[in-house]
Design a binder for these strands. Structure first.
Length: 563
RNA sequence: CGGGGCGUGGCGCAGCCUGGUAGCGCGCGGCCUUUGGGUGGCCGAGGUCCCCGGUUCGAAUCCGGGCGCCCCGACCA
């Protein structure tokens, strides 16, 4: 219900010079957001409305699964963060109050909510319990980027589940997952639920909700029936052709050839016929050798998970001292634990000889060295996914995540309950986050065209953009005014462009702002007794008789399910 | 945190190398014009040239230091 002439909706012809992402450019141009500092954004009236609409959907879907809304402070005493060990996180804003007491600005609210639950939940009868809030989060990001896609302050819906045991957590998790599916569908996003890294925090499972778009910071591996974050994705590799001559063991003179490409082109073999040996130092243990097929890349996260410990690449001095010359490292004769990636399958390979300027041909896993087999390579486009589909890799933005926390927070913070037998047990938790700003930005990324934003109806700032081409005082204007009042009466959400500017500017702005349905009231149409209604997404134009315009417009909107 | 780039009216930029009047387009205000895709004309307002220090008769320009912002990478419970 808005007259554009009286609305703070400053549109720009040009995007800011330093903007790269489509959503960044368009959100600034369409007057949705303005920047205050690095990673700090103000939502203007037209930008705040879609956020509020997303929040409305979040509230409905959370409440529908019995998740109760509350509100927790952003400013918090540091104590609980010390207890959970998260005080050490670099992204955590730390400050002191006037008495010098250490405080933090919360980046999420596990500490706070677990603190409360620890004090007020005592019996198995109080469980399960699900709570959520929509609150500002603060993160001292190393590099804010792409408008609101990665900012230092943002609002997040985060929900927490509290259960008696793992089975209960599994039920809560499924409830949340179902709600998340409905939320992203209702927001009109193209999205995938992918397996994600549970990290070193333990936890028994996690998924991310990914919206594919060019500005995405993550990569997802997709195939029919398969979707995973590339950090954890697993697939069968494309085969490599191994010539029969490889079977014959022989020392190969490879002077100065320390890289896979150099060796393979020198020998006239595909890179996949080589074994790449990478010495690593595992925390709490010593040197180990990781073997990867020559044409593959190591996936740090998968390796970390396979090891169950952190690691780093070994330094040259240690490698030279304990194994052999850098560039010619191989498994044969190396007196080290060996982890062999599963993609190295086949009889014989070329590998480093642990002697300078020398590689070995005919290296056969199992015969020439023993190993533990692991899956630690990064999947690639063209690989075969579990289920048989072909992997494609797409950039995507993470719009939500769900995480089985287990007792990661309840144990240190003493959130326990008494079970039926009177025994004290830790509460089993889950956490579930969604960023409304990322949903809005991802929607713009996915749907925008060369003229501007294309909102899905469900989160559009206004459903209708009514344009009066006539200026104040002209007879055609009265028709538009009347139509505006009629639409308002019908409870449609309308942005009414009643400015005294030229038609080009109005029509251009309407496309930039991107409301689902535009109704133009102008001399040309009125001469035939119609107004023109144009669907933003398809460009389809409908000529509506003036006296039926309101009813017909609402019908057109109702037929737009946003997808 | 490593690498690169940029800070000049609201936005986009030129001027800097070679020191001397701060300029252009858009936008903004007024008048006229125009009226179905940012119309045209005339007049006008608006700038601590990011900050501090230095060199100089004189600094947007040269030198030193600092701050801010953007991009790539690392990082991202």
């Amino acid at each position: 219900m808005t007259r554009l002439s009286q609305t703070f909706l400053p549109t720009l012809k040009d995007p800011p010079a330093d903007a790269e992402a489509i959503s960044h450019k368009l959100m600034v141009r369409a007057g949705l957001i303005r920047q205050l500092g690095a990673g700090l954004w103000t939502y203007m009236p037209a930008g705040w409305r879609p956020i509020r609409r997303v929040e409305g959907i979040l509230r409905e879907e959370m409440e529908a699964i019995g998740c109760q809304e509350m509100l927790m402070p952003v400013l918090q005493p540091a104590e609980a963060w010390r207890t959970t060990g998260r005080y050490a996180i670099e992204e955590l804003f730390k400050l002191e109050d006037r008495r010098g007491a250490p405080m933090v600005l919360a980046m999420t609210h596990e500490e706070c909510i677990t603190y409360h639950v620890a004090r007020d939940i005592r019996s198995y009868r109080d469980l399960p319990l699900m709570l959520f809030h929509i609150q500002t989060k603060e993160r001292d990001e190393a590099r804010p980027r792409a408008g609101v896609l990665r900012s230092r302050e943002f609002t997040m819906k985060d929900a927490y589940s509290f259960d008696r045991d793992e089975e209960g957590l599994a039920r809560s998790y499924e409830l949340q997952a179902g709600a998340y599916d409905r939320i992203f569908d209702r927001c009109g996003l193209r999205w995938y639920r992918v397996e994600s890294d549970v990290g070193m925090m333990g936890g028994s499972g996690a998924h991310e909700y990914m919206a594919p778009c060019a500005a995405g910071e993550n990569e997802v591996a997709l195939a029919p029936g398969y979707a995973a974050n590339i950090e954890v994705a697993s697939a069968d590799p494309q085969p490599v052709e191994l010539p029969a001559e490889l079977d014959a063991p022989e020392d190969l003179h490879t002077p100065g050839l320390a890289k896979v490409d150099e060796v393979s082109s020198h020998l006239g073999l595909p890179p996949g016929a080589l074994i790449k040996a990478m010495p690593i130092v595992v925390d709490g243990e010593g040197l180990q050798l990781v073997l990867i097929r020559g044409d593959h890349t190591l996936n740090d996260i998968k390796l970390r998970n396979a090891l169950g410990a952190d690691f780093r690449l070994a330094e040259a001095e240690q490698i030279e001292a304990e194994i052999g010359p850098v560039g010619y490292i191989g498994p044969v004769g190396a007196d080290l634990p060996i982890l062999k990636d599963a993609a190295i399958s086949g009889n014989s390979f070329v590998a480093g000889a642990n002697r300078v300027d020398t590689h070995l041909r005919g290296v056969r896993p199992g015969r020439d060295f023993s190993f533990e087999e692991v899956d630690v390579r990064t999947v690639e486009a063209g690989d075969t996914a579990p289920g048989g589909g072909t992997i494609e890799i797409e950039p995507a933005i993470e719009v939500g995540n769900i995480f089985k926390l287990g007792t990661r927070y309840s144990e240190p913070l003493g959130a326990t309950y008494l079970d039926e037998q009177g025994a004290e047990r830790p509460i089993v938790m889950g956490s579930y986050g969604i960023g409304p700003a990322r949903i809005v930005a991802a929607s713009i990324e996915q749907r925008a065209d060369q003229h501007g934003i294309v909102w899905p109806r469900q989160i559009a700032p206004w459903e209708l953009h009514l344009v009066s081409l006539a200026k104040a005082g002209e007879p055609e204007r009265e028709v538009a005014d009347h139509l505006y009042e009629e639409l308002r009466g019908a409870a449609a959400s309308v942005l009414y462009d009643d400015r005294d500017v030229g038609p080009g500017e109005k029509l251009t702005d309407a496309e930039l702002i991107g409301c689902p349905l535009r109704i133009v009231v102008g001399r040309r149409g009125l001469a035939e007794g119609v107004v023109e209604a144009t669907e933003r997404a398809s460009g389809e134009e409908h000529r509506l008789p003036v006296e039926e315009a309101t009813r017909r417009a609402l019908e057109l909107l109702a037929g737009d399910d946003g997808s």
